[in-house]
Amino acid sequence: MSGDHASSPVAARVRHVEALLEGRGLLEPDEIDERIDALAAGGTPANGAAVVARAWVDPAFRERLLADGNAAIAELGFSMGGALQEQKLTVVANDADEHHVIVCTLCSCYPIALLGPSPGWYKSEAYRSQVVREPRAVLREFGVELPASTRITVWDASAESRYLVLPRRPPGTEDRSEEELAALVTRKGLIGTAAV
């Protein structure tokens, strides 16, 4: 169980329900923690960074990634299948004209398989409520200053898809190897709250 809300009334209610389910033999002790661990297993921003670096060096892969995220990441050995069912991956690419940023306004949906557990700010009421209304101001708080001519599109993960942002390849990186490029990519870049 998440340790972030240990004292909240909701957490107390969840613990109570968990205890009832265990008491009736419907749930093994620690089963929920094990399921959460399984969901998060192998999930790290390094996975998303590897996907991005490949897309930067291989235009054909980039095309496949934007057309069918699930099939493309499988080429690199990744899968969105950590949950009870495989989640659809939609990758959105930044360019000079358009910048994408991801949110889940209803809860905290997030591509765990490619990014690991989400950061606290992603789940915060402040981020979830403000980024859909004033993304330019929110991005500015993250240190991302976009030209007025760059359109911003916010993707709200309100149903079954999970989103990943494909940042723009930084200028002056033509000589870098795929591994070196991957090292430039940050978690925030993959969410859209950093340039890379």
């Binding site: 004033e134 359109r151 911003i152 599109t153 916010v154 709200d156 309100s158 149903a159």
Partner: peptide, 17 residues
């Protein structure tokens, strides 16, 4: 955004049944 909030020059994509 201007249709959703009455202000803003961005777009919001929501996934809807």
């Amino acid at each position: 955004a201007s249709d959703l909030f009455g202000a803003g020059d961005h777009a919001v994509v929501v996934e809807l049944w």
